[in-house]
Design a protein around this nucleic acid. Sequence first.
RNA 1: GUGGGUGUCGUCAAGCGGUUAAGACCCUGGGUUGUGGCUCCAGUAUACGAGAGUUCGAAUCUCUCCACCCACCCCA
Length: 416
Amino acid sequence: MIINIPKGTKDILPSESYKWQWLESRIRETAARYGFKEIRTPMFEHTELFARGIGDTTDVVQKEMYTFEIAERSLTLKPEGTAGVVRSYIENKLYAEPQPGKYFYIIPCFRYEKMQKGRQRQFHQFGIEIFGSENMMADAEVIGLAWDFLTGLGITDLKLHINSIGCPNCRGEYRKALQDFLRPHYDELSETSKGRFEKNPMRILDSKDPDDKKFSEGAPRMIDYLCDECKAAFEDLKNDLDALGIPYEVDPNIVRGLDYYTKTAFEFISEDLGAQSTVCGGGRYDHLVEEVGGPYTPAVGFGMGLERLLLILEAKGIEIPKPAGCDVFIATLGERPKTFGLKFAKDLRAKGYSVLTDVMGRGLKAQLKYADRSDARYTVVIGDDELEKGVVTLRDMDNSTQKEIAIDKIEEEIHR
RNA sequence: GUGGGUGUCGUCAAGCGGUUAAGACCCUGGGUUGUGGCUCCAGUAUACGAGAGUUCGAAUCUCUCCACCCACCCCA
């Protein structure tokens, strides 16, 4: 039991961790090019923040949160990234800084769900948020960054779905229209859909239940009920995306699962992921900051699943460069050489080289073998012979040549 | 919460009622006492997911449980 990892979590071993490091550096690079700064918020927040922010009718809040009580406080491990950033934005009064505020983060998220391909209980997200802009240019930039990043990795067949899910003004009318449309079939709806009928009828359209799907056919679509402002905004967004040369598909069925979204909603879909096809999802949340207790601040952002991204890269055979092995392995024979080798390694390391030595007390053959396994570029062999001559044997591991060389000349030899 | 699939050494993988439960890879050591990646030899290992049951006898049959994977749901 204690040597079993908790379900839904994964160890990232050295054989994988370099991929994460690579991905993270690509993320930082991209974020920097777009002027996003990293923000780091705690792993957990007050439970109330998520209940209020994400919406207490959502699955995430109702049954997926890792909540714990301590010192009479209810705290919850982040199930997503936005709420924490919003909290921090308000608490630290970041709205007093030059707007827009542009932030990115790479975080673990926690959701108590059944495991599946591309779905874990602890997973990782790359997220960005832009605060303070009502303009669709912000939405276009958020989507543009995602597009840029994803295509830059060599993933070119993603589908971008966009939709507008309106604002509080137009949603009320739509909601009524939708309820009127579905009401005749109410009794035949699935249980979950019945539950959503009053609270959040839009989510019924997202149901994959065959019957629900049938009744949903021909249902009124949010996009047809947009108020003038939302309609104009959606047109702006499409124009901006066209200008950026980003292909998209209007998908009236996108209904993001977190309640805070308004207007823009989008998803990047991949065919390499099985059932969990969304690699990146996001949208606009103009009223979240207010809802959580800050000043009215429009905002837009996305969350991108890193595990899913890695899955796609693997499916596509996109190679992630392996880190280089060490520069030098120092193999020694005997006591005196061993001591000398210790100091020699220290000196080389001080100069910035990555140096491996034998810490197993192995024979020369075994040391060479280990040097080979460690992808050492060079192996330095030091025995009593070398010590007497004041030299060292430098072996090039790639072409199996070696020569004796003065100790103080070693650096110019291995430099390059 | 509901379905379906799978469980034999660290990994891959034979075995299908009676075997010391193969083999390969990995790992360790060695092939005349100072040299890797190939080859040869040897060595290590609490491997039959767990527990009951059937049987003279079970990794092989039955049941229960557990774990993992996949799908529904939901989402990154």
